[in-house]
Simulated assay, not measured.
Amino acid sequence: MAFESNFVTFIGNLTDDPDLRFTQGGAAVASLRVASNRRWTGKDGQQQEETTFLNVNCWRELAENAAESLHKGDRVLVIGRLRVRSYENKDNQTVWVTEIEADEIAPSLRWARASVSRTSGGSSGGGTNNDFAPPPPSDDDVPF
């Protein structure tokens, strides 16, 4: 197996509740939008701020758990792979999108508390190598 180097960790707040949908094949997919603010002091001594918005996609059990557990405004940590894709919009213009295909999503405990409850049917990881989620369905099965 080749070394996977396309990993990113992104921390921010959800801009909306997760949007849970299902593909025609029955696979759950959730879309999340995460905003992260960066603040700094400029050369002139004035406070500056920049906000980065990223779309996050997660699949199967992770999608269902995220949709049930997370809400607008929640601070989250997302670990996954950056994905760049393009599509044609209504005006036949090519639109490029950078997003994260999530392997892990967790609530941030910096300014909040969370309780954990296991779901049935999930893998406990005992004896198998489940470090990475299986790849998402083919593009033919994506509901957007």
Score class of each variant (00 low, 15 high):
17 D>I: 03
17 D>E: 07
17 D>G: 05
18 P>M: 07
18 P>S: 09
20 L>W: 01
21 R>D: 04
21 R>A: 10
22 F>I: 15
22 F>C: 13
22 F>G: 13
24 Q>F: 11
25 G>C: 12
26 G>A: 12
28 A>W: 02
29 V>D: 00
29 V>M: 06
30 A>T: 04
30 A>I: 01
31 S>A: 12
32 L>E: 00
32 L>D: 00
34 V>I: 10
36 S>C: 09
36 S>E: 05
37 N>C: 08
37 N>Y: 06
38 R>D: 13
40 W>N: 07
40 W>M: 05
41 T>H: 09
42 G>R: 10
44 D>N: 05
45 G>Q: 06
47 Q>F: 04
48 Q>W: 02
49 E>N: 14
49 E>M: 12
50 E>I: 14
50 E>N: 15
51 T>K: 03
51 T>L: 02
52 T>S: 14
52 T>D: 11
53 F>V: 15
54 L>C: 13
54 L>Q: 12
56 V>L: 07
56 V>H: 08
56 V>M: 09
58 C>S: 09
59 W>M: 08
60 R>M: 13
61 E>H: 14
61 E>K: 14
62 L>W: 03
62 L>T: 00
63 A>F: 03
63 A>M: 05
65 N>C: 13
65 N>M: 13
65 N>H: 11
66 A>S: 13
66 A>I: 03
67 A>I: 02
69 S>L: 06
70 L>P: 05
71 H>T: 15
71 H>S: 15
73 G>A: 12
74 D>F: 03
74 D>A: 13
75 R>I: 06
75 R>V: 04
76 V>W: 00
76 V>D: 02
76 V>G: 03
76 V>S: 05
77 L>C: 12
77 L>E: 05
78 V>E: 00
79 I>M: 14
79 I>P: 04
79 I>C: 08
79 I>N: 11
80 G>E: 01
82 L>W: 04
83 R>W: 01
84 V>D: 09
84 V>N: 14
84 V>H: 13
85 R>Y: 04
86 S>V: 03
87 Y>G: 09
87 Y>Q: 10
87 Y>W: 12
89 N>A: 05
89 N>P: 07
89 N>F: 02
89 N>T: 08
90 K>C: 07
91 D>L: 11
92 N>F: 11
93 Q>G: 07
94 T>W: 00
94 T>P: 03
95 V>I: 10
95 V>A: 06
95 V>M: 04
96 W>E: 06
97 V>M: 05
97 V>P: 01
98 T>K: 10
98 T>E: 05
99 E>D: 07
99 E>I: 02
99 E>M: 08
101 E>Q: 13
101 E>P: 15
101 E>Y: 06
102 A>G: 02
103 D>E: 09
103 D>F: 07
103 D>A: 09
104 E>L: 08
104 E>C: 10
104 E>M: 12
106 A>V: 01
107 P>M: 03
108 S>N: 08
109 L>R: 09
